[in-house]
Amino acid sequence: MQAEQLRCATWNIHRAKGSDGNVDPARVVEAIDHSLTPLGLHVLALQEADGECRPHASVVNVQEIATRTGLEYIHDCALRWGTESDGFLGTILFLSPSLERTKTDLIDLPGHCHRGAVSVEATFNTREVRIMSTHLSLSQPLRIIQMRTIGQYLRRRPPMQTILLGDLNEWRPWSGLMLNRRLIGTALRGPARRTFPSRWPLLPLDRILTNAPGKVQQLRTVTSTKVALASDHLPLEATVTVP
């Protein structure tokens, strides 16, 4: 049987503060429409897409993003930090209608700075797949603990191919202990590409990873004047096989 392919993208939009220091939410929406919509995405994950402090208020027009991309904004009241938020601690997922959602969860991650992950289990053309997005800590020890927490969550859930995408804040392409199979219980793998800072990318902070039997293919940073100006990160996109 031929493998299905999911087109995935992740972007830390830096609360709409661009590389020029200006805060312009409309510019983020325009950049998504210009540089990501044409990719025909099945999955779009945004980080730093809510306010940094309580009540983590909304930053961008999520309904406009959904309209322009053709993706579904999945965060009903149970999947948001609060009534003024659009996502969970800045993490927002948009999914293709072809992904039939069967289970959604929010995962609190430990640390001095509140972090979290969003997990969605879905059926894609009869295949089961789990999509997780997160934004991990700047501290390496905390990233290890946070990935251990994600691994414990996966241990309690039915086994299925998992796709993890987001700003992992890990500058080393080999990722160190945080992605060790013994730590998280599964081998999440994928190549690294430089995404930060957007004008002169040096560090591969953003990642798209998956475990067996899938594979991350055609990974690339999305480069355009619009995205480089709209945030201090570049978007990352890839095709993930779902055998």
Score class of each variant (00 low, 15 high):
G190I: 00
F196M: 06
L177D: 12
W174T: 15
L188P: 05
V216H: 04
R189E: 03
A187E: 15
T223E: 02
R193V: 11
L209P: 00
A192L: 12
A192K: 10
G185H: 13
G190K: 00
T186N: 10
P173Y: 06
P213I: 06
K215V: 12
V222K: 04
S175I: 07
Q217V: 08
S224K: 01
L179G: 04
L179V: 08
R220V: 04
L183V: 14
R172S: 13
D206S: 10
L183R: 12
R181K: 14
W171A: 07
M178D: 08
L188R: 04
R172I: 13
L179M: 05
L168D: 01
T210M: 03
L219T: 08
G176C: 02
P204T: 10
L179D: 01
V222E: 09
P204F: 13
T186R: 15
K215I: 03
R220I: 04
L209T: 03
L209E: 00
M178G: 07
G190Q: 04
M178I: 08
W200T: 14
P201C: 07
G214V: 03
N180I: 09
A192H: 12
G214M: 01
W200P: 07
L177Q: 12
K215E: 13
L202F: 09
T223D: 08
T195Y: 14
R182E: 14
T195P: 11
S175D: 11
M178H: 02
A187K: 09
V216G: 01
L177W: 12
W174H: 09
G185F: 11
L205A: 09
A212T: 13
A187T: 12
V216S: 00
S175V: 11
L209W: 06
R193N: 05
L177M: 09
G176Y: 08
E170Y: 12
Q217I: 02
L177F: 11
W174K: 07
W174F: 11
L183P: 14
L179C: 01
S224D: 03
P191R: 11
T223S: 05
P197N: 15
P197D: 14
